[in-house]
Amino acid sequence: MSDSPLRIGIVTVSDRASRGEYDDRGGPAVHDWLQRALITPWEADAQVVPDEPERLKAVLESLCDDLGCALVITTGGTGPAPRDVTVDVTLAVGEKELPGFGERMRAVSVKKVATAILSRQTAVIRGRSLILNLPGSVKGVAECLEAVFAAVPDCIDLIGGPRIETNPAVVQAYRPHS
């Protein structure tokens, strides 16, 4: 696997974007942020899916189990609305929840947007994959990645995934277990 680039799944969860009613901006925001932050060669498997639990479940399972993505980042569907199912599906496919990711993202976001307390984003481990839920807004994507990504490389190390090196000008990976 060392000769293969790091695989990262980027999943935008949005009924309207999946129907083409507006352009997906969340997924490209994740991609752009990772492009600046990662030194390790990587490739993205980007998808836009509707807020449908079975479809999202199949996509997350495939990205982790079939495609071997070490990291899967979702954007959208983290709120309290009836069709916001991303977190519920993520928890269902995960083997271990890592609630500290969501706690940290909300702590940072609530300083800028009072309604950030309504966000339910979290992170889980599935096999050797980390699945991380982000809010759907472009601004929220950047704020949340900046808040938590320093811990992502160590987490992936601990679950047996590939080593991820970051650009210290964007984010300094913290590896207390190395």
Score class of each variant (00 low, 15 high):
residue 32 D to I: 01
residue 130 L to N: 02
residue 122 T to L: 02
residue 123 A to H: 01
residue 37 A to S: 14
residue 96 K to S: 13
residue 144 C to P: 04
residue 169 A to V: 11
residue 155 C to Q: 06
residue 99 P to Q: 05
residue 51 D to H: 09
residue 97 E to S: 12
residue 11 V to R: 07
residue 178 S to I: 10
residue 6 L to R: 13
residue 88 D to L: 01
residue 49 V to Q: 01
residue 123 A to F: 00
residue 80 P to Q: 10
residue 24 D to F: 06
residue 167 N to P: 14
residue 170 V to P: 06
residue 119 S to H: 02
residue 93 V to H: 02
residue 107 A to T: 04
residue 78 T to L: 06
residue 8 I to H: 09
residue 161 G to F: 10
residue 166 T to C: 15
residue 88 D to A: 08
residue 75 T to S: 04
residue 48 V to G: 07
residue 42 W to R: 14
residue 1 M to K: 07
residue 120 R to P: 13
residue 120 R to S: 03
residue 10 I to P: 13
residue 35 Q to V: 06
residue 130 L to I: 07
residue 21 E to W: 05
residue 15 D to N: 14
residue 24 D to N: 14
residue 152 V to N: 03
residue 33 W to M: 05
residue 36 R to C: 10
residue 137 S to A: 06
residue 114 A to G: 12
residue 60 L to M: 07
residue 112 K to T: 11
residue 50 P to V: 06
residue 143 E to M: 12
residue 156 I to C: 05
residue 87 V to H: 08
residue 134 L to D: 01
residue 157 D to S: 11
residue 93 V to P: 12
residue 165 E to R: 15
residue 1 M to F: 09
residue 133 N to K: 00
residue 66 D to E: 15
residue 121 Q to P: 01
residue 44 A to M: 03
residue 171 V to C: 04
residue 153 P to H: 11
residue 61 E to Y: 04
residue 92 A to M: 11
residue 124 V to I: 04
residue 67 L to D: 10
residue 45 D to H: 13
residue 98 L to S: 02
residue 71 L to I: 15
residue 35 Q to Y: 09
residue 29 A to K: 05
residue 139 K to V: 11
residue 53 P to Y: 00
residue 29 A to L: 06
residue 55 R to M: 11
residue 37 A to I: 06
residue 25 R to T: 14
residue 45 D to Y: 04
residue 176 P to R: 07
residue 163 R to N: 14
residue 168 P to V: 11
residue 121 Q to K: 12
residue 103 E to C: 12
residue 68 G to Q: 09
residue 160 G to Q: 10
residue 42 W to H: 15
residue 10 I to L: 03
residue 30 V to L: 01
residue 146 E to F: 00
residue 58 A to K: 10
residue 158 L to G: 07
residue 164 I to Y: 06
residue 95 E to P: 00
residue 121 Q to F: 00
residue 40 T to K: 09
residue 19 R to E: 15
residue 137 S to E: 07
